[in-house]
Amino acid sequence: MSASVAPPLLEARGLHARYGTREALIDVSLTVTHGELLAIIGPNGSGKSTLLRTLARMQRPTAGAVTLGGVDLWALSPRAVARRVAFLPQAPEAPADLTVEELVWHGRYPHRGMLAPPTSADGAAVKRALAWAGVDELRARPLGTLSGGERQRAWVALALAQEPELLLLDEPTTFLDLGHQHELLALLRRLNAERRLTVVMVMHDVAQAAQYAPRMLALLAGRVLLNGPPAEVVTSAHLATLFGARLAVLHDPVSGAPAIVPAPL
């Protein structure tokens, strides 16, 4: 153990937070290191979204702290956080006639002064973001004319234009059809592998999460139940505890990807 270990990218310690008047997080601790891809799973109302919002500085914890690179999130300004952390809420909405490129330019907001004209660095970041998210061909299209999958990729491009170290996504595949779900998750995994972008995402579909995320964090009633690789987390016994249902875990004979089916009686 070296004495001068760099602080982890993101760390939560003893986190408590509310959703409305309900206590939604109870003593949650987790560490996210640079370059990780983490999926947060759990049943409805387990505190997944509240945890993500607390990590994104959307919501102040009632106790405990979140640190970004060792610094308390609430000691930093919202802009300073936005230059390092991008947050994509579930099903974000934008004016239908906004073009993809106009949307992505908003990602430069935290990097620009109130009146400063855009710099060449801003333009370059937008161009890169459009290319990496695979929407450069769509740049002139109004959002209202895009398919659900294209629109979600445009939102990812907005987040990339922030040039974040950490990308937080709340159920990014909601409302997408199966093909677009996998396309988006593959994109996120590629960004994680090739661009060293750290990704934390709340996932609804446990099997999908297991397929794409090397590490999973399972919440139950506001507490961390499990934290580890899919092989440890996604077991029939754990799923019974989490979801209160008898489920069996099968594995694809070719890829080894898990599939979850109702257990035979």
Binding site: P78, R79, P89, P92, A94, L98, L103, H106, P110
Partner: peptide, 23 residues
């Protein structure tokens, strides 16, 4: 007139605006 960029970001919703660093 100086609030134009706030209003542009507001159009994306409170959460996105907050995530972009707007108080």
């Amino acid at each position: 007139l100086l609030t134009a960029r706030w209003l542009n970001v507001f159009a994306l919703g409170d959460d996105v605006a907050r995530g972009l660093g707007v108080r």
